[in-house]
Write a protein that binds this DNA or RNA. Structure first.
Lengths: 330, 330
DNA sequence: CGAAAAAGGTTAATCGATTAAACATAGGCA
DNA sequence: TGCCTATGTTTAATCGATTAACCTTTTTCG
C-alpha cells in the first residue's frame, strides 16, 4: 500500500479507502481509478494478516474432525470449505484422532490464529474444552456428535429415530432375533443408536436382550469383530438380523460372515449406518441408513456464520433424518 | 501481553522475551517466573496474526487438491496435516475441482494470508499460475501431478513404470489383447500411464492399436463408461484384459461388465490404478497398483519445509514406485 | 460579499506482537 | 576513585493494514 500511495502521490489512507470501496462519493473518481490501476500494475495483494489484526476479523474458520481421511468427514469437509469460500472464509483443518486432548490442542492453535469460529466433531471427553470455548465466547457448531447436557449449536443425525426405523423395518420384514454391533463409547450419538434399537424392539413387544448387543472399542474393531460376530452367531437360536453401528463395523462384519460362508440375507440380514462403498459389489448389496452429508455441512456452516456475523446467540440444535436405503441385504 | 506487563509491572518487551525464552541469561529468574505465572493466570494466548505480521512467517501452509472428498487426497491430507502440525505449521485447504481458475483463486487467497508455502495437486492449465508462484518466490511442491516442462518440486508416482509393470504382468499371465481405459486430459501423469502401457506392449512385440485405448473426459465418466466398455468388448477378437487409469473408472467399469454378465478374470482380466474399496467384496477382488499415499504426503511436506526453512533452492523431483497388488482379477 | 456546506485528502492512533538499541545500576579492578 | 563490564530492563520503531478526526480548498447561496 505504501508503494501505491507513493507512486500515485497520495496517503495510504486514501489508497485504503479506494481499494475497499469506502467513502466512494467523497473521492475524486479519476484519482480513485488511478489508484486502482496502480494497484493492479504493482500486483498489490492485501496482507490479510494485517487486515485481520486491525479489524479483529480473520475470515477464517477451523474445522476439527476425528479423521479427515474418513469419507464421512472428507465429504462434509468438501462442502464446508466450498460454502465457506462463497462467504469469503478460509478453512483451517485438523484431525483429532478421537482424542479430546489433540482436539483441544488444535482448537488452541486455531484460536491463536484468531479463527472467527469452529466446526467440531467432538471426541469423548470434549465437554471441558467446549465449555472453555463458551466462556471465551468463541462461536462453534458441533457436527455428527453432541452432548445433551451442553447448550451448544449442533447439526447431527437423529440417531434414535434412524435406529428405530431401521429396526422397525427389520421387524416388518419378519426378522425377530435382531442383534446390534456398535462402538463402545460414551459418545451420545452412538448411545442414541442403541436406544433407538432397543426402543423399536420394546414397542413391538420384544425385550431387548443384553447378549444381543455387542459394543467394541473404536480402536480395535478389526480384531474384535470376528470374535463378537461369532458370539452373536453362536446364540441359540441364532440371530437372524444385525444392525451395524457404523460403516467400519459393517465392512468388517460382512467380510467376516462372508468368509464363514453365511448367506445374506437368507442366513442373516444386515443393515448398517452410513454408506459402505466397499460393499457395493457384494452379491447382496447392503441396506443402509444414509446420512445427508451435504446438508449437514451446509447447515453447519450456515449456523456458524449466523452466529458469527449476526451475533445471533440463539442456539441451533438440528437433528436431520436418515434415509433408509433398502437393498438386497434385508 | 499488555495486561501481563501491567500486572507484573514491567514492559511488554520483557514479557515477550520471557515468553519466547529469549535472552534467558540476561533476565532475572524470579521475575521471569512471575511473568510466566501471570501469563498462565491470565490465560494468555499469543496472537499469531500479530506475531506473523511482525516476523513475516505465518507458520501456515496451503493445500490445494482437486477434491478433498476423494479418498486419494483425503488420505494424503491427513498425513500432511499431521506432519505439518509436528513442525508447528497449520494447514489451510481447498478443492479446485479440476479447475485451474479455482485453483489460482485459492492460491491467491492463501497468499494473501501469507502462507509460507503451498502443496498443490495442479489441474490442467495450471502452468501459468505455477510460473507466477515461482516469480513471487513462493515455495511450493506439486503432488500427484506435475509438468515436465516446468522446473518445480514434485512428488508423484512413476506412472510410466507403473503402467509398464502392470501391462507386463498381464502379458506374463498370457493376456495379449490388452485394452486401456483412461481419462481424456492433457495432464502429464495420465499421459505417462498411457505411454507406459504402450511401451510395455511394444517391448513385447505387440503394436498398440488405437482402438484399444479409450479416453473419456473427467467430468462424464459415469455416462461414458458403458459405451466405451461396450466398444472395447465389441472388438473382434475381444479384448481379454483391461488396464484402468483410475479408481473411479475401475469402479464404473467393473459394475458395468458385472451387469453384463462377464466373468472376471475368465472373460476379462481387470487391473487398475489406485485402490478401489468399492470392489473389495467383489467375487474377484481386483488387482491394482497401489500408490504410497502416506509416503507421498510425508515427502511433500518434507520437501516443502526444506525449501521454506533452509531456503533450499535445490529442486526435489521425486517419483515413487507403485506396488503391484495381485488379487483374483488377473 | 461572506459564512456555511461540500468535496477531497491527510494525520496519526491503533491492532498485538518483536527486537535493535539505549539506558540504568551494580560490581570488578587497577 | 574512576572506568569498564555485566546484568537487567525499557524505549520506540516496525510489520501492513484501518479509520476517526481533522484540515484545506472550492462551491453554494441568502
Amino acid at each position: 500500500m505504501k508503494d501505491i500511495a507513493q507512486k500515485v502521490g497520495v496517503s495510504t489512507a486514501l489508497v485504503s479507502y479506494v481499494l475497499n470501496n469506502q467513502k466512494v462519493n467523497r473521492i475524486n473518481k479519476e484519482l480513485a481509478q488511478k489508484i486502482k490501476d496502480t494497484a493492479k500494475e504493482l500486483d498489490y495483494r492485501p496482507n490479510q494478516l494485517a487486515k485481520s489484526l486491525k479489524t479483529a476479523k480473520s475470515l477464517t474458520i477451523g474445522l476439527i474432525v476425528s479423521d479427515i481421511s474418513n469419507p464421512f468427514f472428507s465429504n462434509i469437509a468438501r462442502i464446508i470449505q466450498e460454502e465457506a469460500d462463497n462467504s469469503k472464509y478460509t478453512v483451517l483443518f485438523g484431525s483429532s484422532d478421537e482424542s479430546a486432548h489433540k482436539s483441544a490442542q488444535l482448537a488452541d492453535t486455531f484460536i491463536n490464529r484468531q479463527v472467527d469460529g469452529l466446526i467440531i466433531a467432538p471426541s469423548e471427553g470434549a465437554e471441558e474444552q467446549l465449555a472453555y470455548l463458551q466462556r471465551r465466547e468463541i462461536p462453534f457448531v458441533l457436527i455428527d456428535r453432541y452432548f445433551p447436557a451442553l447448550e451448544t449449536n449442533y447439526v447431527a443425525l437423529d440417531n434414535y429415530r434412524a435406529a428405530y426405523e431401521a429396526v422397525s423395518h427389520l421387524l416388518d420384514k419378519g426378522y425377530t432375533r435382531i442383534g446390534m454391533v456398535t462402538h463402545e463409547t460414551g459418545l451420545f450419538h452412538l448411545k442414541e443408536r442403541r436406544y433407538g434399537y432397543e426402543g423399536a424392539l420394546k414397542d413391538r413387544g420384544i425385550a431387548p436382550h443384553p447378549d444381543w448387543v455387542k459394543e467394541i472399542s473404536l480402536k480395535q474393531a478389526k480384531t474384535a469383530i470376528p470374535e463378537v460376530v461369532d458370539q452373536l452367531l453362536g446364540l441359540v437360536p441364532r440371530m437372524d438380523a444385525l444392525l451395524m453401528g457404523s460403516n467400519t463395523l459393517a465392512d468388517l462384519t460382512v467380510k467376516h460372515i462372508h468368509a464363514l460362508g453365511y448367506k445374506v440375507p437368507k442366513d442373516l440380514a444386515i443393515l448398517t449406518f452410513d454408506e459402505v462403498e466397499s460393499l457395493d459389489l457384494f452379491y447382496a448389496p447392503i441396506s443402509y441408513l444414509r446420512q445427508p452429508l451435504p446438508e449437514m455441512g451446509r447447515l453447519a456452516i450456515q449456523v456458524l456464520l449466523d452466529n458469527m456475523e449476526k451475533n445471533n446467540t440463539q442456539l441451533s440444535q438440528i437433528q436431520l433424518p436418515a434415509e433408509l436405503v433398502l437393498r438386497a441385504s434385508t
